[in-house]
Amino acid sequence: MEKACFELKVPSDVFYLESVRAFIGKLSETLRFSKKRIADIQLVLDEICSNAVYHGSKCVSCGIHLQISVNTQALEIVVSDKGGVNTHNWLSPERLAEIQAKRSPTGESGHGLYLIDCLADIQKFQLNMVGGTDVTAIFYRDVE
């Protein structure tokens, strides 16, 4: 199988995230991830995109950008936002550490980043050049 890359620009509105979740579910199925792993991939993408819409977007038309790369060993997802109204680079290393330290199982928020950390094989949070955040999640494929 050749390397493949998909790019999507999605409006910054959670209404559209269902379609993104359906797309990654179908792609993961095609790549023969297990059902359990497909659910993990869909959940991680949902969490990353929801954060990008809520915290990393000034308006609906700003949009978020998804780059999904596939090779024989892994599925890699990169979600890029442009930064929110008062939240440029909303996920700075300091902010990330603060969110992780404050998370409580009995709390109502702060769980999304924790789930990404638990479920992706590799995850990276990087500030980007336009004042937003790039979040990368990598899932290794089962080698047959």
Binding site: D46, E47, S50, G107, G112, L115
Partner: peptide, 8 residues
């Protein structure tokens, strides 16, 4: 499917 927003 359920995400962390709904769980929260």
């Amino acid at each position: 499917h359920i995400n962390s927003t709904a769980v929260g």
